[in-house]
């Protein structure tokens, strides 16, 4: 052991460098836990199986009736895979990233290393969002790829459109990660975070649509799950048409994400660790 640092007081690192340190810490933590990779693997597997199923059933229909080809959409099917499968994996990942340290008390060690709580939240959010972006683009690309392998002979793939779906899914999954890291930081419980996430993504919009009341139905489009798919499917959702198309839906998701982060930050600042 070398001399103790009692009296040496080097200047604090610049904010940028300090944030890089915390990013490295959070990435080391996220990547050193098997659950992270299991989640990613599960997402890829689920998407591949989904795309295979959808591809073959579409191929069957087209074989029976060549006109059915006009109703086929790579973006629509892939987006549904993201909506029904991948977004829940992102929810689980983000919920775990934000809350696991409250379950095992690792949050004390983290805050001892980095007492600036805002910095911890920022780094955790960025790392999880980055991973979610990678997971979103990878699963969407895999979905489109598998569909194309199955059905590419019958229906050409518009590359621009495919790229838009892939990047859109990535961006939306990243924003979902931001949203659920915020909620998880505020709630501190994994189960609660996943429950709230499930309601926001699927439960509430389904109920609102079931109501058969038009304005409630439209309100469902303001929830992050439907606004999200509306965005990455570029309006070609297949089961729901929101009153508005395009980028506004991304802004809706962004609004949810920012609000959740603000609440999470306030909780993290105010409450004892």
């Amino acid at each position: 052991m070398t001399t103790p640092h009692t009296d040496t007081r080097p200047a604090a690192p610049a904010a940028g460098r300090a944030l890089l340190q915390v990013l490295a810490m959070e990435w080391t933590k996220l990547s050193s836990v098997r659950t992270t990779w299991w989640c990613l693997g599960l997402g890829l597997l689920a998407m591949a199986v989904f795309a295979l199923l959808m591809g073959y059933s579409a191929a069957d229909r087209i074989a029976e009736d060549p006109d059915a080809a006009s109703g086929f959409s790579y973006a629509q099917l892939t987006s549904q895979g993201v909506f029904y499968l991948v977004q829940f994996i992102v929810l689980t990942l983000a919920a775990l990233a934000a809350t696991n340290e409250y379950a095992n008390r690792g949050i004390t060690t983290t805050l001892l290393a980095v007492p600036r709580r805002g910095r911890v939240l920022a780094a955790r959010t960025i790392v999880t969002a980055g991973f979610a972006f990678a997971a979103g683009t990878a699963t969407a690309a895999l979905g489109i790829g598998v569909l194309w392998l199955v059905i590419g002979a019958h229906i050409p793939l518009d590359a621009d459109y495919a790229v838009r779906t892939v990047l859109g899914a990535g961006a939306c999954m990243a924003l979902f990660a931001v949203l659920f890291v915020g909620i998880g930081t505020a709630l501190r419980g994994t189960a609660g975070t996943i429950a709230v996430g499930f309601l926001l993504l699927l439960g509430l919009p389904l109920v609102l649509q079931l109501s058969q009341v038009q304005w409630l139905n439209d309100l469902a489009a303001c929830l992050p799950g439907l606004a999200g798919i509306e965005f990455y499917a570029s309006g070609d959702v297949g089961f729901y048409t929101a009153p508005h198309d395009g980028a506004v839906n991304l802004w809706v998701v962004l609004g949810w994400a920012v609000a959740a982060q603000l609440v999470g930050y306030a909780e993290l600042r105010a409450r004892d660790a």
Binding site: R17, V22, T28, K29, A113
Partner: peptide, 9 residues
């Protein structure tokens, strides 16, 4: 420990 080292510089 690696995570802690990275976070603490």
């Amino acid at each position: 420990l690696l995570a802690l080292a990275r976070g603490g510089g």
